[in-house]
Nucleic acid binder design. Structure first.
Lengths: 332, 332
DNA sequence: TAATACAATGTAATGGTTTACATCATGTTT
DNA sequence: AAACATGATGTAAACCATTACATTGTATTA
């Protein structure tokens, strides 16, 4: 392996000067610079990145922690993160947890061990105090989800108002008996969507039917299963608000399998606006999250922290947009 | 920062002994070991991973290169890779190329610079000679796709026979005028699927209609667009074989938008068996790729290379399974 | 021309771990 | 009891780039 010493020797300069040429810092006389560059090329020198990382104690890589890479929501956010990371010359480490909190702790260790310079959490199941503690020492950003009452920088949409908006849309279509498929409550945004739903009903003086409220796990299958259960009830709801699109898609499928027409017999709405929402039949009315932008902004926030730039706006709340499609038409 | 020196001093041993305790190599007397462990705990010592990586010149991380993380196919393979990598204690670096060959070259550099110990290519657009050259120096595995005539270790299904199988299925249903949506030919598996299709037609003495052969780019949108074009032809094909499920889903949507029933008026089949294939309406007949297994095996092959274990079987060909669903029923 | 500023380059310490080799201690064999 | 084997531990070099500080060279100013 050729080292910076070999280059220095060949170019008849010190290693310091080679390093200066390499990094374009300080002044180096043009003639010297040329000689060094020539030597680098002659020897086909590649700086040893590991030595550099060690010396500088920075890795120029970050880790993104999320429960499931195959999720259409998380993978889109990841894409946004990756775009900005690449622009800033950072590598992105995959932090797939398979929804296992223990795995999350392992990724926190990467930060402690300085194996990564920063971390983006797309959601968290671990103790918030632990996160807060590590966030006080290392660059961390929360994206898509948030922590209640913590200072950790974050970017997300306003889930409460999104859920309120889409519920109001259902109500305005004439629906009064609305089922709600909630997600696991260890996700904070699950609570928000639930609260938005309740607020909307309350503001229209509508009743919440306890047996219309079911908990799923954000998968298509769970949406399917919950729908079968809800259709057994008497009276049936006339609409379903599923807390995410995957459950909504499962709901559509279940309804159709039971011989119901969507939206005529049962209106269904979702949340997130994943690709499938505009592909399924009927297309899904939903709240669009700006997934790519969430990722981009999260990475920007992280970058600022890593560069020690004070955050002008540590909490970014984006807008969730109501997308009206065909899965919920006016009820006559 | 506490270092191994601090621990050694406190435990009244040499750094070598601390290192030995840390790695469980060599013999260390129990009493000494206990003292060292105590010191580590007292000082809350964390080894400096960057120093270790530098010294050992290994990073225990690999990079996975693929065009698009949001693709339901690639993300599933990635999941398989990640599972095994985690078991072997490797970190996985994201190598999203956005289908840009230049980005691919950048990831090759990671290997040269020893920033990663190995690389899995889920597909490649760059010069095969370049890959072969680097594969002769560094651990590389190709997964899902392959290189013609190269020795690079790989794992994939037999795309030719998969395509043949599903085409024969269409033929047995009575279809003779079959359209084929091919993918970009810079993917080797695209060629294979095309060849499998042709072989099946040939073995049944069926004609290939040039104007039924169109090239898409594996997206839903392209499947949609191609279908609109194909339905303008006279005579129309009675079936479409789309080279992947996403295009097939787009085809279904286009056909339905044009007022056609699938499969009665137009049969449609795909390839890959992504989740959406069993969710869309009608559900899609397709060739199932064992995506997770492909990823697992690829990582196993890579691991063996990184450990310098000679590969017993450098080329793994798995089976693609015909999954018969509703998108292609018997033509009367 | 002497004094001063700054440009250009060099010297050498530094970062923390691993490991080849050396040394010492203890136990076993004849 | 001497000779030898092996277990336990220590010493110090090596890995390679970066950078604070020192030194030399060159240009500018009064």
């Amino acid at each position: 392996m050729t080292t910076i010493n070999d280059v220095a020797r060949l170019a008849k300069v010190s290693t310091a000067t080679v390093s200066r040429v390499l990094h374009d810092t300080d002044n180096v006389k043009q003639a010297t610079r040329d000689r060094v560059i020539k030597a680098i090329e002659t020897l086909n020198y590649q700086p040893n990145i590991l030595a550099r990382q060690f010396r500088r104690s920075e890795t120029r890589s970050i880790v993104v922690v999320f429960p499931d890479i195959t999720s259409p929501f998380y993978s889109k956010v990841l894409l946004g993160i990756e775009a900005v990371a690449h622009r800033y010359n950072y590598q992105v480490l995959l932090g797939n947890t398979r929804n296992n909190p223990e795995r999350e702790y392992q990724y926190l260790d990467l930060l402690r061990e300085k194996q990564v310079d920063g971390m983006i959490l797309l959601t968290s199941r671990i103790d918030q105090a632990d996160v807060a503690e590590i966030a006080s020492q290392f660059p961390i950003v929360l994206a898509g989800d948030y922590f209640e009452g913590l200072q950790v920088p974050m970017v997300a949409i306003d889930n409460i108002s999104g859920a309120r908006k889409i519920t109001e849309h259902l109500i305005k279509q004439g629906h009064e008996r609305i089922a709600f498929f909630q997600g696991p409550m260890y996700r904070n945004f699950s609570k928000d969507r639930w609260n938005g739903f309740r607020q909307a009903l309350a503001s229209y003086d509508l009743q919440i039917y306890e047996n219309y409220i079911l908990e799923g796990n954000y998968t298509v299958d769970s949406g399917y299963a919950l729908t079968l259960r809800i259709l057994d009830l008497n009276p049936r709801p006339t609409a379903i608000f599923a807390s995410n699109d995957q459950m909504a898609v499962g709901a559509i499928k279940a309804a159709q399998d039971m011989g119901l027409r969507v939206p005529e017999d049962l209106a269904i709405v979702g949340f997130d606006d994943i690709d499938m929402a505009s592909i399924c039949e009927p297309e899904l009315t939903t709240i669009a999250q700006p997934k790519h932008v969430i990722g981009e902004q999260a990475m920007e926030l992280l970058y600022q922290q890593m560069m020690n730039i004070p955050l002008s706006k540590p909490h970014i709340i984006l807008d969730g947009k109501l997308i009206i499609r065909e899965s919920c038409r006016k009820k006559l």
